[in-house]
């Protein structure tokens, strides 16, 4: 079974064991030429039920584990499945080509687009090359160069987010990673072409947001998006990184959470057990949604498009307004 080579997540283990037993029973029956259909059927039904139960009630931490699955599709997997005539474009024209941030031109459903995405590796070798998907300043500057390029040739921009964050190192500070991210936030808020952002895996803080401002923000069902890593948050709160599961619950980082908070526009469906089980299915869903929004966005006059994009982010935030009068009264009471 090919599945055996795939990482089995902690919460999937009971199900995996049951499946293995059913498989063993079948093999045994085949060898001995026995008919075990009557025995197998209830077991398979039980497995099916178990599977539905597990995936119907996933908690935040289980979703984080699916998001971190080693076989989860990456930006270039989606590009391969969604984009025609893709040509990768390299470099920020200033310092280097950041391989954690990929970009290029291509067509989606016949529409020419610029693709920009954070790229993790599939294995250790590729991860070393991709710096584990953690971009340096030149990655964000490459992204900005390609966005300006898209603006010049009137091509909508599709960005893909999958990173634990910008790389925290000496060089990043020297070359101004904060400036590079900040610049992108400002420029993306007023770029004169439509931008569709897709959070496909890990949305890690400022490093994710650095290519995350757009007219529509889509998010895969098992992707996460958070202001801080769950381990980092647990370390700050309880001085204990192993309490990351609790931090993941509190931070509300799942697609469902973000949809409820109105930070994203649509949740893109994945196979029940995660995108790694069926790349094509996931890519098709994502492509359908992107094309749907693109066709709407390209018809909106530019001024309105920019005004709506501004309002979208301008209206984000949860705060209360304290009546000034009540406030003054309270202050007086406090002073008395």
């Amino acid at each position: 079974m090919a599945d055996e080579h795939i990482q089995i997540l902690e919460f999937e283990k009971p199900l995996a064991e049951l499946k293995k037993k059913i498989e063993e029973l079948k093999v045994y029956a085949r060898e001995k030429n026995l008919n075990v259909d009557a025995e197998v059927k209830p077991l398979e039904e039980r497995a099916g039920k178990m599977r539905d139960e597990i995936y119907k009630n996933l908690n935040s931490w289980q979703i984080v584990q699916i998001m971190r699955h080693v076989k989860r599709p990456k930006t270039l997997d989606y590009v391969a499945l969604m984009i025609d005539d893709f040509q990768e474009l390299h470099g920020d024209r200033s310092f280097a080509d950041d391989k954690a941030m990929v970009g290029g031109i291509g067509k989606i459903d016949g529409i020419s687009v610029m693709i920009i995405g954070l790229q993790k590796g599939k294995d250790t070798k590729e991860n070393l090359m991709r710096n584990f998907g953690m971009s340096q300043p030149e990655g964000y500057r490459k992204a900005l160069r390609l966005m300006k390029y898209a603006e010049k040739f009137n091509m909508p921009v599709l960005t893909f987010i999958d990173t634990s964050g910008a790389y925290p190192g000496i060089e990043g500070e020297e070359r101004g990673v904060a400036e590079a991210i900040a610049r992108n936030l400002m420029e993306m808020s007023r770029l004169k072409v439509p931008i569709i952002v897709s959070v496909i895996g890990e949305g890690g803080s400022g490093g994710a947001l650095g290519v995350g401002v757009g007219d529509r923000v889509l998010m895969l069902k098992y992707a996460t998006y958070s202001v801080i890593s769950f381990e980092g948050c647990a370390t700050i709160l309880w001085k204990d990184a192993t309490k990351a599961a609790e931090a993941a619950r509190i931070l509300k980082p799942t697609a469902k959470d973000l949809f409820e908070l109105k930070v994203i526009d649509e949740i893109i469906d994945e196979p029940l057990e995660g995108a790694h089980k069926d790349y094509e299915y996931t890519a098709n869903n994502l492509k359908t949604a992107i094309v749907k929004y693109l066709k709407v966005l390209v018809k909106i006059p530019l001024n309105r498009l920019l005004e709506e994009r501004y309002k979208k982010f301008r209206n984000m935030g949860i705060y209360e307004r304290v009546e000034q009068q009540a406030q003054t009264a309270k202050e007086e009471a406090d002073n008395a």
Partner: peptide, 10 residues
């Protein structure tokens, strides 16, 4: 949470 991150964009 995520809302504080969005303030950077805002």
């Amino acid at each position: 949470g995520i809302m504080s991150l969005m303030q950077m964009a805002k």
